[in-house]
Structure formats: C-alpha cells, structure tokens
Design a binder for these strands. Structure first.
Lengths: 229, 229
DNA sequence: ACGAATTTGTGATATAGATCATAATTGGAA
DNA sequence: TTCCAATTATGATCTATATCACAAATTCGT
C-alpha cells in the first residue's frame, strides 16, 4: 500500500473506476496534486462547517458520514472503500455540509478540488464515472431514507445488521464498529432501544452477541423482519 | 414557449445551466434528440419500475418525486423547474427507481440517455454543471432527511409550508398543490395528523386556510416552530 | 492492576402520533 | 341543481418508542 503523504496514483492498487479511465498525463497530474493520510478509530477526517479545498478518496477502512440535526447528530451513511467522499460539499460553497469520521483504521487520499474539476473538464469518461458514482449514492440513500422512515425499530436494526454483514464485512460474523449509541444515531433510535432490540434478537436466537462481536445466525429470519418492518 | 413534440433548444427560454455551456453543434445534436411533452395535474411522468431511455428536463409546472416504501408511497421531494429529473435512474440499470408525477400543469423535455451521455463525454463544462446540480440535490436531500427524522409533526409541517412559500411559489399565499393525504406522504404523517396540525396552526392564527388556499400570516412564528422541531 | 470514565442492560413511565370510527364538507358528473 | 365520490374534520383509543432512572459491565489512562 502507498505510504501516507506521498502517493503514487499510477501504481495504487486501490484506484477508483473513475481514475481507471485517466491517461498517463492525467495520472501524473493527479499524482502531484494528491496526498495520503491515515486515521485511527474515531478520528475525524473532516468536520461539518469547516472550509475545505479537497475531495477525499477513502482507500481502506470504514467511514461514517454524519451531520448535526435540529436535536442531535445523525449518521447519514457508512462508506466502505474504495469511494470518494465529500464531492457535493466541495463543488459548491467549499464548506463541508457534513462530517466524516473513521470507524476503523482508515487511509485516505486528498485531491485538490481544482484538480478534480480539471479532470472532469478534460476527461469525459472520468466525469461520467464520477456521475455514476454520485447517482448510485443518491439512489441507495433514497432507499435507506424510506426504510428509516417507514420501518419500525426491529426492521431498521435488522436492515443495519444485514447491511454490515453483506455490504461492509462480507461475513456473517463481525465486530460492530460503532457503540450502541452511535448505532442508534445510524438507525435513528435511542441507545436504550438499540440495547433492548439487540437483546430481543439475541433472546430469540437470531443473533449471537459477545461484547461487540455479532454473529448473524438466522439471516433469513432477519430478512423477514427487515421486510415486514 | 416551445410546443410539445418538436422543440428548439437553441431558442428555448428555459434552458438549464448545463445546456447554457453547449456550443452550436452540440445544441443541434441535442435538438434532434429531444422531445417535449405536457402533463396535467396528477398525470404520471414516469413510473417506478418501468424501463426508460430518457432523462426528463422539467421546464414549467411542479413535479413530485415519489417512491414505494415497505408500507406506503412516500414523496421524496418536490421539484420546481427548471431541473433535470431522473438522472440517477437512467445512468445505471435503465430502470426508474422512483416515480415522477405532475402536481400542476407541467411541460417536460425528454432527452435520450445516450445523447445526455454523449454531451457529458464531449463537453467537460456540461458534465461539471450536471455534477453541480446533482450535488446540490444531494445536499438538500440530506437536510430534508434529517429534518424529517428529527423534527416532530409541527416542525415538519411548518418546514413544508415555508418551503412551498419561499422556494416553490415565492409568495406567502398559495394554493396547496397536494391533497392533505399527499401532503402527509411528503412530511411523513397521516392525513389525520396533517388535518389536525393545519387546524392547530389556523386556530393559533399563524396561517389562514380557505379550501386549498393557504396564507402564511406569522412566518416568523412558523420559522420558530420549524427550528424547535 | 486500579479506579474513573464510558458503555451497556433493564425497569417504570410518558407521549407523539398512529389507528379506528364517524361525520361534515367539497367538488365533479349527469 | 342533485347525487356520489373524494376529501377533510374531529373525537376516542392504542402503541411504539422516547425518557428517566439506576445498576452492571467494560474499557482506558496512569
């Protein structure tokens, strides 16, 4: 893997679809306008409200995107690498409209907004890939949003567990990368409700819980709970 | 205004920021791959689940974007022209992931997806404008989403009224373009709760209601309600 | 390894808003 | 106009989940 600070986009093994379509000259340009950084658990990558002139490319780890609401912070989404974050923020008023925080040890490449824009202007295929990626995000956020609104807590929690297993860890057994309180901010529930609902699923034998380790035993049943809300 | 069916993008007075940056040749290309259509109140523009090969550009009127959830249809957003709709849908699997319905008499231009993609590939400034527009959408949807989740019904309804007045109609007095039941789907509440809450605001003298005509009397107070949730 | 701080578990209570039920009003078609 | 369907109003419950309160367990810093 590339070391932080200096990076080499040509040899980077974690390149995005978008970067794949760049030519040699463009890669050189990217390389000289790009810097790596590492973050530990719960380290802030960027902060809502702060000025920025970078787009972040998450290479490894796991990141939460979160935002202050009228009454509390809310986790909008969990981002699994590789993925750009902060594109919307940066193209507009250069103020971050949300925060990003590492949930696991995470490596990030920062790219100057101006560099990013230049690549969009110059390479249509790059622009197209970027648009695809944003659109994907948008659609899955719509889905999540509707689920959050219409399902009740069992369904939302089951959703989240299945998402972590299937999309994030690709394993039925994993370590919950969030506190129950954070998990609550993610599925829009209180800490207490998360605890009770996990307890309920555990008592019903659908999951095993050992500290932060979670094991999905009855995924079909969880899927049914997720469907019914 | 252009007549439906045949359109002329060069002389169209309702062009998007994105189309503004096209050159003569590109405009000609767009013109020959573009068709206009008109919709009346509550006419479906496109339907979730259906195949499509078009992007829609809403020129006049008002459109709701809505999507089936686990328990009911939900209005994701109200779109005021001029604006592209259906970009995310079309770039991916060509299946509409949500529906669009006219709330007022509405004119739309349909552009072939392939044409749209060609313009993105060919003209970096066009791509850039499209990205800006999608990003704007994304950010405002995050805001709306958090407000929907965290505010209670008075706040959500006040939000919606202020949004209609300030963003959609640009007037403190307007005709509600939705039934109370639809309004409920928009602010995530039942028909009954909408009725009661409107009744409450009316009784408190913050708004006037005459049939579907609504008049915002105490906007400052509504803003306060919106803030407090 | 120890105590402090954070995180989790669980009961009792409160409440916003859904649901159910029924009536009043409006609007469109014939 | 008159009738029927759709929309709106409003009261009486019901319920999921927040809140509050405190105890238990785990993690962390020194």
């Amino acid at each position: 893997m590339d070391l932080p600070g200096q990076v080499n986009c040509e040899t980077c093994r974690i390149r995005s679809c978008a970067v794949e379509v760049l030519d040699q000259q463009e890669l050189d340009f990217l390389k000289t306008n790009c810097a790596g950084a590492e973050y530990g658990r719960n380290e802030r990558i960027f902060q809502q409200g702060s000025l920025t002139s970078n787009i972040a490319y998450v290479k490894t780890g796991l990141v939460k995107i979160h935002k202050n609401g009228p009454s509390k912070d809310q986790i909008l989404k969990l981002v699994k690498p590789p993925r750009f974050i902060g594109i919307p923020t940066v193209l507009g008023d250069k103020i971050n409209h949300y925060s990003a925080t590492a949930l696991l040890p995470t490596t990030v490449c920062f790219i100057f907004t101006s560099t990013f824009k230049t690549l969009i202007m110059r390479n249509g295929r790059f622009a197209n890939e970027v648009i695809n990626s944003i659109c994907q995000d948008e659609l899955s956020f719509y889905d999540r949003s509707i689920n959050q609104m219409q399902k009740q807590i069992h369904g939302r929690l089951a959703d989240a567990l299945l998402f972590l297993a299937d999309e994030i860890f690709e394993a039925d057994s994993f370590e919950l990368p969030l506190s129950q309180s954070d998990f609550g901010d993610y599925i829009h529930a209180t800490r207490e409700s998360v605890s009770r609902t996990l307890g309920r699923l555990k008592a019903d034998g659908l999951i095993q819980v050992k500290g932060k380790k979670i094991n999905l035993i009855e995924k079909d049943m969880l899927r049914k709970i997720s469907k019914l809300g």
